[in-house]
Computed example of a mutant assay.
Amino acid sequence: MSIGEIAERFGLATHVLRHWEAMGLITPARVGGARRRYGPDDLYRVAVILRGKEAGFSLEEIHEMTATSDAAKRRAVLLRRREELARRIAEAQASLELIDCALDCDHEDLPGCPHFQARVAERIPAVVTP
């Protein structure tokens, strides 16, 4: 497949794929001099990069993780990102529960509803004493 076909398939600009290639994240075959040709393995690499970005990995972290054969290095990168992703998921879950609580609330004054207040209470910072 050409760079244009891959870009269209993933909804990316071609310059993004060129940047990823310059970083060493993808290595399409070259035919006829400079024409890039992407194969099935490249499809998976692009998908890995996109999934990694969705999980909060930087391009540098994705490169570090995919370019190393050192399992301990890869594991360290994955563990760091896993902790951050778990935190983001917990925050998103708490937000979803707050929205569900608001949807189920019949009070005219939503912020005054005791059930709603109980869901929001964890976001109130504790008093800091000197």
Rank of each mutant, 00 (worst) to 15 (best):
T68P: 05
H63T: 06
D42F: 00
F57R: 03
A29V: 14
E54G: 12
F57S: 01
T27L: 11
S69P: 03
T66W: 06
A47N: 07
Y38H: 01
V46Y: 02
R82N: 09
R75E: 12
R30S: 04
A29D: 13
S69K: 13
G39V: 10
Y44G: 13
D42M: 00
L59T: 04
E84V: 12
R45F: 02
A29R: 14
D41C: 05
V46L: 00
R36M: 07
E84Q: 13
E54C: 06
A34T: 12
R82D: 07
E64F: 00
I62L: 06
R37I: 07
L43G: 01
A67Q: 08
Y38V: 01
E64K: 11
E84M: 10
V46N: 01
A34V: 11
R35F: 13
Y44E: 11
R82L: 08
H63R: 15
E54V: 09
T66S: 15
I62E: 00
A67P: 06
Y44I: 12
E61S: 07
R82E: 09
I49Y: 03
H63M: 06
T27H: 14
R74N: 09
R35Y: 14
G52V: 02
E60Q: 15
S58W: 02
I49S: 02
A76M: 06
G56N: 08
V77P: 00
R37G: 02
R51Y: 07
E60N: 14
R37C: 07
H63Y: 15
R45Y: 00
T27F: 09
K53R: 15
P28R: 01
